[in-house]
C-alpha cells in the first residue's frame, strides 16, 4: 500500500514537472541584466512580463538596453560591470516614493464613441441614396 502511494506520488511529480517548468519558461524574469544577457535577452519593453523597473535605470520603458539601442541618453547595462543593474532605490525596498500613490492598473481613457460611428452614418447615407436612385429609376421606367 505504501509502495502504491509512493508510486502515485512519483508519477504525479513526473507528470507535473514539465508543466511547472513550462510555466516558468514562459514568464521568465531576470534579477539583473547579466542574467538576461546570458539568456540572450536584451531591450526588454515595458509591456513584456520580463520587464522590471530595476533593470531600466534610465526609466525609458526599455530594460537592459544594449549599447546603441534606445535613446542616446544612455542604456541600462552600460554603467559598469559592478553596478547592481541600475536599481534606482538605494534602500533596496521596491517601494517607489517619487510617485506618492501608485495607481492600480491602467487608465480608462476613451469610450470608443468615434470608432466607425461616423462610418456607419456615412455608409448608411450612401446605401439610402443608392436605394433612392434605384427606386427613382424603376418608377421612371414604369411610366
Amino acid at each position: 500500500m505504501k509502495r502504491l502511494a509512493s508510486a502515485v506520488a512519483v508519477s504525479a511529480v513526473l507528470v507535473l514537472t514539465p508543466v511547472v517548468l513550462a510555466g516558468t519558461a514562459s514568464a521568465q524574469t531576470f534579477s539583473n541584466c547579466t542574467e538576461a544577457a546570458a539568456a540572450g535577452v536584451d531591450n526588454i519593453p515595458a509591456s513584456s512580463p520580463a520587464y522590471s523597473a530595476d533593470l531600466d535605470s534610465d526609466g525609458d520603458g526599455v530594460a537592459c538596453e544594449k549599447d546603441g539601442a534606445g535613446s542616446g541618453s544612455g542604456s541600462d547595462g552600460s554603467t559598469g560591470s559592478t553596478s547592481q543593474d541600475e536599481s534606482v532605490s538605494s534602500s533596496g525596498s521596491s517601494r517607489p516614493d517619487q510617485v506618492t500613490v501608485v495607481p492600480e492598473g491602467g487608465a480608462e481613457t476613451g469610450d470608443g464613441s468615434t470608432e466607425t460611428g461616423s462610418g456607419w452614418w456615412v455608409g448608411g447615407g450612401l446605401l439610402a441614396a443608392a436605394a433612392g436612385l434605384l427606386g427613382a429609376r424603376r418608377s421612371r421606367s414604369r411610366v
Partner: peptide
C-alpha cells in the same frame, strides 16, 4: 524614448510609476 501598447490587465505599473534617475 519609447511607445508601448499594453493590456490594461497587465499594465506596466513599475515602468510607468516607478522611481527614475
Amino acid at each position: 524614448t519609447t511607445v508601448v501598447q499594453a493590456d490594461k490587465d497587465e499594465f506596466p505599473t513599475t515602468a510607468v510609476y516607478g522611481d527614475t534617475r
